[in-house]
Amino acid sequence: MVQKSDLILGLGYDPIEMRPGWRNVWDPRVHRMIDITPEANTHYMHHDSLALISALNPTLAALTSGAGKTATWPCGAPSAAQAALIAAFPHGMTGARPV
């Protein structure tokens, strides 16, 4: 889903617990990726096509000033991915099953 995006925004994204198969999920030569973080990327877990090294709140306020809401993902892919993630794990219910 991330690779199908026409724009990837990393808003304060600080990758954790990365391992083989999780790194460099997108290719900044192919995908447009904007990283907005207060610190420069020295983790090399992914790369961006544009980096804004700045505080999040004022940067986002400046970038969205006067911008209206735009419809994204009319196919509903993010909510479908979220639902699939929720369905992948157990929820609720107490029973004498192993923890």
Binding site: E17, L85, A88, F89, H91, G92, T94
Partner: peptide, 26 residues
Amino acid sequence: AECQATLPANTLASADSGAHRILLSQ
């Protein structure tokens, strides 16, 4: 799932590092 179902909605949580926190974060 048991912790989430049993603990009240206003619970404050912290997670350590390692496999458990990947699962917990998901």
